[in-house]
Amino acid sequence: MARFGMAIDTVRCVGCMDCVVACKTENSVPEGFNRDWITTEVTGTFPTTHLEIRSERCNHCDDPPCVSCCPTGASHVHDLGAVVLVDADKCIGCKGCVASCPYGARFIHPDGYADKCTFCIHRVEQGLLPACVAVCPTHCMHFGDLDDPNSDVSTLLASRRHHVLLPDAGTKPRIYYLT
């Protein structure tokens, strides 16, 4: 059973937002909303400044609070890759999941349902990479099965320093940032 995740190389990332734009066109994300976004964390004092630029999105957590809090079962863990998805037809737009997500990854689509990153499961099912990964001009994004020790992501996590966002939230996120 695959468990999909991402390893994103912050050393290569330039924060160009191509991942955000590609997601928007691939998934027809409506104006005013995005399923992924860029965070630039600035530390230090000029000129000894340090940046960490991250492409962020739903972490497809191993222990997803958005799924456990959903009253209708719309938020669920998909069979393929344990990807966290929303069944728009079952969603009543109660926003419980929006509030429960420590990453702010969800929003209510103008059509009334909770929306977020799907890891482009419709592409993955066809053997394609998620749109954000496929478009990245810096090749900083890697997608694959965390349970397969020979996958691209597993190899990178084994060899590079990395961290996740908000580990203390206890949700076991699956987006890793290589530093």
């Binding site: 290569r12 330039v14 924060g15 000029f46 400044t49 630029i53 001009p137 810096t138 090749h139």
Partner: peptide, 29 residues
């Protein structure tokens, strides 16, 4: 496009980058 792709490639290869800029650009980082 091509330049940014190659820049990321150079960074990934561990090239030594020297940036001269009054602003701490992304490249500076």
């Amino acid at each position: 496009n091509s330049q940014v792709q190659e820049f990321a490639e150079a960074v990934g290869n561990g090239a030594s980058i020297i940036v001269v800029d009054p602003r701490f650009s992304v490249a500076a980082s």
